[in-house]
Structures are given as C-alpha cells and as structure tokens.
Design a protein around this nucleic acid. Structure first.
Length: 916
RNA sequence: GCCGGGAUGGCGAAAUUGGUAGACGCGACGGACUCAAAAUCCGUUGGGCGCAAGCCCGUGGGGGUUCGAGUCCCCCUCCCGGUACCA
C-alpha cells in the first residue's frame, strides 16, 4: 500500500481524463440533458479563491447530475474584452491582446488544476474574431429590428475611463470598476431598447430564481403607476410631467424642471436668464457624486416663467432645481409641497405656497403655516374640485380611489392620461474604448447610417495602434476610412460594444464555438437549451443577469430560435416557453472573505509630543506586560509610518520616524515599520489588505480534492464567510482517511448482525442525505454526512464486527458519493478496486429505504415539555404502546408521585409529553 | 430612509420545517505512542451547581401563542447586502 501523493495522482488523472475525452459532451436524444453553467471568468491574470468557491461546487453539482443519469454539458470560456487589458497596455506597454491571451493561458492551467469536468472543446473566448463576429451580428440584428438605436441623451461619462457607461455600471455616482466619479453629459450614443421589455422582465415564468435577485431586478426596473399631465407655459410650450399622485394636482403650487431640461431656455425670462444660466453651468460641472455628497438642502432658481395648472387654471411659477433629474420621468415635476417631502422642503426654502389637499383621517385639517413636514398618509381629498371628498389610501396607482378618480377626470377633460413610468433606462451599449467588439456601423458621407454587410463581418480590431489614455480607434485613419455599400467614401463607427453584450449570449456560443455560419448550431441548441442551472455571484443581479434575460427575449422576438424550435419539434420536444428565459434555475454562491488576524503586540518607547508618541524604539513581543514600555498594545492600524495601537486604556497614535529601530524577532535581519502586521478584520480579500488566499499554494500543499472538499464543507455555499486557514486540515484528514479506507483490506473478526445492520443503515442514510443535499446545493451537510460515514467505516474496520460485503458496500458508496466532490482520489481508489470504467460514469448509488429505516429508535419522554427520559422503542410503536412505555418510565413515575397525569401527548415514535 | 438577508458553543456551522439544540469539522484540554517534538490514535469539550443520581440556565433582547418554540406572531437592538432627492 503506497501513500497518498496528491500531486502526481491529480496530475495523472487530469491528463488521463483529457486524453480519454471523459468530459466531452455530445447530443444524445436518448438521454435526458442537463446544461449546467457557471459564470465565465474575466482573464484578470490569476485565478483566486473566489473562482474556486464559485466553480468547484458548481462542478460537483454537474458531476452529481451526470451520475444521476443525465447527459451533462458543463462548459467554460473567457469574458475577455474589457478595460483592464487597456490599462496594461498603457502602463506596461503590453498590447491588450497579448496581455489577455497570456492571462488566459495561465488561467487555463489553473482551471485545469481544479479537476473540473469542463468540456474544453467547447471553450469560447469573447475577444476571438470568430466570437465577436457574432456579437457584431447580434448588434446588427438588433439595429434591423429597431432595438438598437442611436440617440442623444444625458449619459454617464467617466473622465477616468474616458468612456460613457450604462446606468447599471454606475454605483453611488461612481463607476463600478474603479470607484471614480462619473459626470452627466449630453451625448449621442448607441442604445438597446431594453425598456420595451420592462414589463416582461418583471415576471419570471417557470424559473427558479432566488427571491433577493428578483427583488433587486424589480427595484431596478422600478415600475410606477400614475399619470402624465400636460402644463401649458405662458410662452406657449407644453411641459409634460409624470406623477404617481395625480390626485394631488389641486395642491400643485409650482413646477420644477431639471436644469438640463430642453424647455428651460424658452421659459426663462430675460430678467432671470443670468441666474438660470449660472445655476445650469454649476449643475453641469458637478458630478453625480458631488450632487449627492452635498447636503440635502434644496437649491434652485426661479426661471421667471409661469405655467397654468390645468385642473384649476392657477398660474404657478416654474423653477429649476437639481433635485429633479432629467433621466427620470419627463425631467419635470409638478410640485405638491403639502404632500411631498422634497417639494415641501423646497417650498419652505424659497417661500412658495403650500396648499393641503388631503384631510388626514381622524385628525384636524392641515393648516399650511403650522405644517412641519409634508403629509403622505391616507385621508379624504379637499380643495380638489371634482374629486373633493374622495377617499385616499396608502395604495399605489389605480388601487387608490383618489388616484383612480383623478385619472378618470383627467382623461375626460383631455388634460392628462394614465401612464406607467420605469426607472429602467435603455441600455447604453457604446463605449469609447478600444478593447471591445467594434460597433459594425458606417457613417455615409450623406449622413445616413448603414450597417456593415454580413459578409464583411466581423469588423476586425486593428492591432498595430499606440495606446495612451484614450481609445486609439477614433484616431486611426486606417480603421476609420472605409466605403459604404455604394462604394462611396465613408467613416466607420469608432465606438466598441459594452463587454456585457459579449456575456449576454456566451452560453449559446458554447454549443458550437467553431461554427462559422451562425452564432450557434440549432441542432445543438434544440437539445441543450435552455440552461438548466446557472451559478455565480449576486454582483451581476442588475447587470449581466438582467441583460441576459433581455437578450433572450429579443432573440426570441427576432426569430433567432425559429430553426431551433423546428428541430425540437422533430424530436418530439415542445418548444413552447423555452426561449422566454435563459436560465431555469439560478443559484448564487456567497463570498469567501479574508480571515481575521490579530495585529502584532508592540512595545514602544519614545517621547510624547502633542498627544502623539514619537517612537525611539519599537519591538514586537506577544508576551509583553502592560508596563514593558511607554506604549504597549496591539497594532490595530498602520498608515505609512503612523501606528494606531490599542492599549489597555484606549487607542494611542504613534509616529515612527525614519531610522527608528524596529525589532521583529520573527523576521530575521533589520526590520522596518512596514513589516509590522496590523489587525485585520473580516472583509473582502484584496491585495492591498494583504488578506488574499492563493489557491495555487493550497492546491500544491493539500491537493485540489482537499481544497474542493474544504470549500464545500466550511460554509453554507450561498452565504460564504471568512476563510479559516486552520480549518482546511480537517478536510485533508478526511481525504487521507478516504485513502486509508480505499486501500484497506477489510477483515471481519467478531461479526455481529446488529453491527452489520447498523453499518448498512448508516450507508443508506448517507446515500439519501447526500442525494438530497447535492440536489439542493447544500454541499456542507453532504460532506458532513460523508465524514460520518467515514467515521463508521473506520470504526468498523477496527472492530471487524460487520459482514465484509456490507463494509465493502459502504466503501463503494463512500467513493461514489464523494466522487463529485473529490474527483481525483475517488477515481484512483475506484480503479484500484478493479473497476475498468471511470467512477465518474458510474451510477449514483441506489438507495434502499428498508435498509435506511431504523427498527428501533430513541423516544424522548418529556414531563411538562422538559426532557426527562429517553427509551429505545420499536420504530413502528403505536400511540397506546408509546404512552404506556412513557408512563412506565421510572423517571416519569417520580414526577407523577403516584398521581395521574392531566394529559399525555404522544407523537410516536419520536416523543411523548406527560403533562402533570 | 426604503427593500432583502441574518444573529445558535472559543470558531465555521447542523437541526427531516413546531418535537432529543449544538450533527460534522476546527480549536482547546487530558491520555497513549516517542529520548523529545510533529504526525497518528483514544477520550472530554455550551454554561453553572453536585461525590453521584441528577438539577438549573441556554439559540441577539422583551412579550405572546402552544402540551411543547432556534423554528410561528408582536415589539425592539445590532450586523451584512442592495438601493436612494425616482416625482
């Protein structure tokens, strides 16, 4: 019996599986299919522990599905376009393509070290021309179907990234990637009309998605019901506003336009033009972030213009203010200060009229000068002409009687109409960047836009360009100069497509990554689509996952699945509803966070200066008492050479001047202040924090099987948690025990039938447990059940008390059940046991319910709900016998003291509660 | 603020959905082996009281429903994620 050598064993099997094509997936209409998909990585350079945490449990689930009899497709690829490649080009003078392809080479090796069942022959790389040819083709299709369009709009411009960004990529006024502020600009850009699908995106037909993701998407889409009302200005323009509260129109005392609103110029009177222009200039120069960081104090200026409230012909002033956003609704609001807090604050700030139109239920009528805040609760409409006396509630839209009455009245009068507004904006898909798929459009010299002809796709990214800050595409005459369909000189579009467009269809490309005649092969699609389980992080809730859903719906409507549908029907598969949603089941893993770590205990001497200790010597000494130096305590934070030290009396600041003696006995040689380790809290891993866990090192030291097992065991998968560097040893011990069991020769010594039955019961209970846990993504309890089986098998091996056949059955079950989790060691041991075929093609062990069922169980006896005794009873015990057994218990007799119980509640064979 | 998810031993976590709280693992402690250490093996391990049998307390806090609550209901605190002048 040789020892367990994870390094050579894992390498050997990875090579053999690949050589044997074990994970090639082919269409087979005689078998049920399962398309398991894990989010494809961006080739950032190195695979981190988060990739392992996302992918290896997904792989285990895919392997489990395979052993359960499914024909499984589990592909992988790279989301390979994106800005980091351009950064590398600028900063390190490496071409984005070179940087990306080199990173992918390294990551492929790392991905292979996982031992995942990826079908590498289906790999798709989004920056390959034969991939982005089809990204361009999809764009063109969208353009032809008027889903893609070019328009001028207020957009997010990132000065740092030198490009525009989609709304979804801006968080708190900062770009999602680098956290730098973005500014609002009016620009002409390319959009996808995702808002056409807003309503359909709100429902999730026949899919099993986590509720939190659905909620995030619903909030993002932000459907509001209300009305559009048109106000006439004195200058003769119409100002259309959207409101969810048309019932409060009679309380509208002024209007506010976004500073960028197109009507501002014509409304503004000459006397006010100077202040208005100044305000608009100031608003334009502020980033979203600055607008938000400023206090919520309302700012704004009067335009000098007036509009007429269509419900009561009141003349109301028109203001501009930056609390009204051009990008939401119509960019203009009617202000009802009595019943909207923002309008209320604005009115108070500038002394505008406040007219209450809701009489709160059961309270005094609102009186304007006394109001301290707006009133938004239920009540009865007052001062509201035709809807006076109508009840108003907390309900939204037409469900609120006053809103319904107001809408009906407005429509009768022709002053407004019912309307639905969405927070969702159309998807801005053009980017002023180089490393992306070119937008396949041409600007003819006569100003007409023209799509590049199909036979000329893809528009290839030129490689021989210089990289500085901005995209070199717009400056490359060679790239820009082209001819249109009539041979006239024309200019190419120099924008590229958002990389989220590449990832909005990649799972189709996996079906046939080499196909030259279409984006995907309809024969493959008819069998494999849709994706059955999709796994990945929640960070894509309103980006990738929303775009992907939109994309599939648009593809469906453009007839792209027509061939696929026809082939499905030929095979007797009903295509109805199969192209409405891309991913049937979605599961999100949590995040592995950095481990908590104590800071060094420091002993510092020096001189006090302005409450700060200027150190003359710093020493690390974990055993130091509180009086060992001027300051003694744990280093909680370090910023350059300034330390924050937690002492018994509080946090003390220490400055360590250059040249100060720093003594860290654990690190030989001369030390400096930068080697001191501060306290680390549990938080996301990042290089700058120094809490990154490197999976390559772990795999080298413990093996992929151990790393996989630990990642699946240590946390609830969908939750994640802080990495515990000590815990992995438990997984390693488990794997070593599996080796011990797998290579052991079992010798029966004193066989007892009870021990045999007990072992067999554990085996079959484990089968049932692992089966349901793998099905439900509960990997941690599946591993725990396998550890329990390991414990039993080891104990039985020592005692030799079970029949050899049963012990062997248990060992075989252990290997098969563990195979999806730890694929290498189980394969090795399986083959050593004399099996010719791979364990990964074996069937999942059959569950014998009779064997799993216990014949006797421990029944709990309670007295007044407290556990007082436990007795072993027949598992099939009836209620009367259970009660009799409980009352016969001497412990119960003690409590009864000869008396009778008031009542007895029996739930045999689990529990009997004797109530005295 | 609003929406979502949480809070269980020293730590990561279990608990067939109202029925033995703490499975499984880490760590810790005691023992065996060893000249010694590591590794390995055996045992103990929620807190308190007790020689023991056993008793009391215990799932963020407070109330409630129930024969019985980690689980259901009401109120509160804190933590994590999302989102925010959204008309």
């Amino acid at each position: 019996m040789d020892t367990y050598d994870h390094l050579s064993l894992e390498r050997t099997w990875q090579e053999r599986w690949e050589a044997e094509g074990l994970y090639r997936s082919r269409v087979d209409w005689d078998k049920p299919k399962h398309y398991a998909l894990t989010m494809l990585p961006y080739p950032s350079g190195d695979l981190h522990i988060g990739h392992w945490y996302a992918m290896t449990p997904s792989d285990a689930r895919a392997r489990y599905m395979r052993m359960k009899g499914n024909n499984v497709l589990f592909p992988i690829g790279f989301d390979a376009f994106g800005l980091p490649a351009e950064y590398a080009a600028v900063q390190r003078n490496i071409h984005p393509a070179k940087w990306t392809y080199e990173n992918m080479d390294r990551m492929r090796t790392q991905l292979r070290s996982m031992g995942a069942m990826f079908d590498w022959e289906r790999e798709a790389v989004s920056c390959d021309p034969d991939y982005y040819k089809w990204t361009e083709w999809f764009f063109k299709k969208m353009y032809e179907h008027r889903i893609a369009y070019r328009d001028e709009a207020m957009v997010n411009w990132s000065p740092t990234l030198q490009t525009v960004l989609a709304n979804e990529q801006v968080i708190d006024g900062k770009d999602e990637r680098t956290g730098q502020p973005v500014v609002q600009r009016m620009m002409e850009q390319w959009f996808f009309a995702i808002t056409k699908y807003a309503d359909e995106l709100l429902s999730y037909p026949n899919v099993d998605w986590p509720e939190p993701i659905r909620v995030m998407q619903r909030n993002w889409i932000g459907r509001s019901e209300g009305a559009e009302v048109s106000f006439k200005t004195e200058a003769g323009d119409d100002i259309v506003v959207f409101t969810t509260r048309p019932d409060t129109l009679w309380g509208a005392t002024f209007m506010v336009l976004a500073p960028e609103h197109p009507l501002v110029d014509s409304i503004t009177t000459d006397g006010h033009r100077e202040v208005v222009d100044a305000y608009r200039t100031a608003a334009a120069s502020r980033s979203e972030l600055e607008r938000m960081e400023e206090s919520r104090d309302k700012t704004g200026v009067f335009t000098g213009g007036y509009a007429i409230n269509p419900v009561n012909d009141e003349r109301i002033p028109v203001w501009i203010a930056d609390y009204v956003l051009l990008s939401y609704g119509t960019g203009a609001i009617m202000a009802v200060p009595a019943h909207d807090q923002r309008d209320f604050e604005f009115a108070r700030q500038f002394g505008l009229d406040i007219v209450p139109v809701i009489h709160p239920e059961g309270a005094d009528a609102l009186v304007e000068p006394a109001m301290e805040e707006s009133y938004v609760g239920p009540g009865v409409m007052v001062n509201s002409g035709p809807i006076d006396g109508v009840e108003t509630t907390d309900a939204k839209g037409r469900a609120n009687p006053s809103v319904a009455a107001a809408i009906d009245w407005l429509e009768e009068q022709g002053a407004g109409k019912e309307a639905i507004n969405y927070r969702l904006r159309d998807w801005l898909i053009s980017r002023q960047r180089y490393w992306g798929s070119p937008v396949p459009m041409i600007y003819r010299s006569d100003g007409v836009l023209e799509a590049v002809a199909d036979e000329d796709l893809p528009v290839i990214l030129p490689e021989d360009l210089e990289f500085h800050g901005r995209s070199p595409l717009g400056e490359s005459e060679e790239f820009l100069a082209t001819t249109d369909s009539e041979g006239q000189p024309a200019r190419r579009e120099s924008d590229t497509l958002d990389t989220f467009m590449c990832s909005s269809w990649y799972w189709f490309r996996y079906l046939s990554p080499d196909l030259d005649s279409a984006a995907f092969d309809a024969e493959e699609a008819a069998y494999w689509l849709p994706v059955d389980t999709y796994t990945g992080g929640t960070e894509h809730a309103v980006m990738h996952l929303l775009y992907a859903r939109f994309f599939v719906k648009a593809m469906r409507d453009m007839g792209i699945f027509d061939d696929t549908s026809a082939i499905m029907k030929q095979h007797g598969r009903d295509p109805a509803g199969l192209f409405d949603e891309p991913f049937l089941t979605l599961r999100n893993q949590g995040q592995v966070l950095g481990a908590e770590r104590d800071g060094d205990t420091l002993v510092i001497d020096g001189d006090w200066r302005d409450g700060l200790l200027v150190a003359s010597s710093v020493r690390v000494d974990a055993a130091a008492g509180p009086d060992a130096g001027a300051v003694v305590g744990e280093l909680v934070r370090r910023t350059e050479n300034v330390l924050q030290v937690a002492t018994e009396t509080g946090i003390v600041g220490v400055e360590v001047p250059e040249g100060t003696v720093v003594d860290i006995s654990a690190i030989p040689g001369a030390n400096d202040v930068h080697q001191l380790k501060p306290h680390l809290e549990v938080q996301r891993m990042s290089k700058s924090r120094g809490n990154v866990v490197n999976p390559d090192e772990l795999v080298h030291e413990y093996g992929a099987d151990t790393v996989r097992t630990y990642l699946m065991f240590a946390f609830e998968w969908q939750k994640g948690g802080p990495w515990d560097p000590r815990g992995i040893i438990g997984a390693r011990r488990f794997i070593e025990d599996v080796w011990k069991l797998g290579t052991a020769v079992y010798t029966a010594r004193s066989v007892e039938s009870q021990a045999t039955t007990d072992l067999r019961r554990t085996v079959h209970q484990t089968i049932a447990k692992v089966d349901s846990d793998m099905q439900e993504f509960k990997f941690n309890t599946a591993v725990a059940a396998l550890m329990t089986l390991r414990n039993e098998l080891l104990a039985t091996m020592r005692s030799g008390s079970a029949e050899p056949e049963v012990w062997d059955e248990g060992r075989e079950a252990l290997l098969k059940l563990l195979a999806p989790i730890a694929p290498h060691i189980t394969e090795e041991l399986w083959r050593r046991l004399g099996n010719d075929a791979s364990i990964h093609t074996a069937e999942f062990p059959a569950f014998d319910e009779a064997a799993a069922r216990a014949d006797t169980v421990t029944m709990v006896i309670q007295v007044n709900g407290k556990v007082r005794d436990r007795i072993d009873v027949d598992a099939a015990i009836g209620e009367d016998d259970a009660v009799a057994a409980a009352l016969a218990s001497s412990r119960v007799q003690e409590y009864l003291g000869g008396g009778e119980p008031r009542t007895v509640i029996a739930r045999p064979p689990k529990i009997v509660n004797v109530v005295i």
